[in-house]
Structure formats: C-alpha cells, structure tokens
Amino acid sequence: MTTDRTRAGTRVRRPGRALAVAAALLLTAGAAGVAVAAGGDGADGARPAAPASAGKREAAALTGTAKMFRKTTEDVRFTFDAHLAAADDKRPDKATGTFEFVHLDKPGGEGGWAKGRIDCLVTGGKVATATGIITETSPDARMRSLKGGRVGFSVHDQGKHDRVGYSWAATGGPDGTKKLSKCNSAAPFEKVEKGTGDFHVLPWKVPYPTA
C-alpha cells in the first residue's frame, strides 16, 4: 500500500415440488451473489451488536477490531461492525454496517487508511465473508483513487486467535475495482497479533425453503 504523511486517524414459497424447492434456494443465493461460507460479541474493541427486531436475534454479524501479526514494525489493523437484520435473513446483500483498515510502516507512522460501508455479509459457523464500498480514505492520490471501489474481507473467529483475509491478497493492495462480486474475498490467512483485539462472528441460520 502506498504511503502519505498523514497519521492514520482511524477509530481506522413454498413450491409444491422438490425441483421447485431446489430452484428457489439457488435463486435466493444467486440474488445475493454469494456462496455460504464454510464453517459473540464482547471486549477487546468489539462494538455491540445491533439490537434485534421484533424480539428476534439478528440474522448474522461480524464485529471487532484487531492488529495483524507482523515480524516487521508494520501496523496493519482491521475493524468491522457488520450486521444482517433478522428481517433480511434471506438477503445477505442487505447487510449494513461499516469497516475500516489501516496500514502504517510503524505504530503512529506513515501509511494509508480507508473506511466504508458494508454491502454484503455471509457467516457460517465461526467464519464470515463480507464486502463493502470504500467511502473515505487518507488524502494521498493512490488512496483517493480507491473511493467507490468494492473490497472483500473474511474472518475466522477462533477466540482471540483469529485469522483475517482480504480480496487484494494476491494483488498487493486494493485497486478500487467495482467488479468484485458481493461477499467475495480470499481465505482468512493472516494471524491476529495476540492481545491487540478480537473478532466475533454470529452464525447465519440458513433459511432453507420447505416443501
């Protein structure tokens, strides 16, 4: 990720036949543009989950913040506050919330950051995949060019031994693409540095159709 002199200031149917049932499920997933990810909320910077509506728990959530493990002085952090309301349990592409990420050469040093709004969330067990649109960045030209682009994230919630992935894992940095499909990201390969935070995944209860 390119750098600038700005210090990162992030706070970072019910169909009658079996065939129709199967088709309905595929159409539901296709509308969201996602595949179900394979397979809490609390301290360490995690934000509280959105209140459930009509007495129901929300359909899915990804919350928390943490620093990625590095052998260098780099300071790389991710923050998520993503929620899928109970009323939208069949539409992962109706998820709402925010994300932030920051990459500095050292804590408090030079680097870049971006934040944005969540536009898709799928969770399965303790794994989450989400995407969002970048709405704000640090001021250098390279980062500003990312505005309006979609980025993806994945998290494996392992109880303070979490892992994180992101859609630009193979390209060296986000490129501002608008072509990335919703809820699409690389596998969660990065380790969270111990003691820097924690992520929490609320599993999605897949709304399978019934005959």
Rank of each mutant, 00 (worst) to 15 (best):
F80R: 03
F80T: 03
F80Y: 11
A82S: 08
A82Y: 11
L84D: 10
L84F: 10
L84C: 05
A85I: 14
D88N: 08
D88P: 02
D88E: 10
D88S: 08
D89S: 14
K90W: 03
R91A: 15
P92D: 12
A95M: 07
T96L: 01
T98D: 06
F99H: 00
F99N: 00
E100A: 15
E100W: 12
F101L: 04
F101I: 00
F101A: 04
V102I: 07
V102A: 11
V102C: 13
V102H: 08
H103L: 08
L104D: 14
L104H: 10
K106D: 08
K106V: 14
P107R: 00
P107V: 00
G108Q: 01
G108C: 00
G109N: 04
G109P: 01
G109Q: 01
G111M: 04
G111I: 01
W113K: 00
A114E: 13
K115L: 05
K115C: 06
G116H: 07
G116I: 02
R117I: 09
R117G: 13
R117K: 15
R117Q: 12
R117H: 12
I118F: 14
D119S: 09
D119W: 13
C120K: 09
L121M: 09
L121T: 09
V122A: 13
T123W: 14
G124C: 04
V127T: 15
V127S: 09
V127F: 09
V127K: 15
A128F: 14
A130Q: 11
A130N: 11
A130K: 12
T131V: 12
G132N: 14
I133L: 11
I133V: 15
I134P: 10
I134E: 12
I134V: 15
T135A: 06
S138M: 00
S138I: 00
D140G: 04
D140R: 03
R142G: 07
R142C: 01
M143R: 03
M143H: 11
R144P: 01
L146V: 02
L146Y: 08
K147N: 06
K147Y: 03
G149Q: 05
R150F: 01
V151F: 05
G152D: 10
F153H: 12
F153T: 10
F153W: 15
S154I: 05
S154Q: 10
G159D: 15
G159E: 13
K160I: 00
K160C: 00
K160H: 14
K160S: 14
D162A: 15
R163T: 15
R163W: 07
R163F: 13
V164R: 03
V164P: 05
G165T: 05
Y166E: 10
S167K: 09
S167N: 08
W168I: 14
W168R: 04
A169P: 02
A169S: 10
A170R: 13
A170E: 13
A170F: 10
T171S: 15
T171F: 05
T171P: 04
G172E: 04
G172M: 08
G173T: 06
P174L: 00
P174Q: 05
P174F: 06
G176R: 13
T177W: 08
T177A: 04
K178W: 02
K179F: 01
K182E: 11
K182Y: 10
N184L: 11
N184G: 04
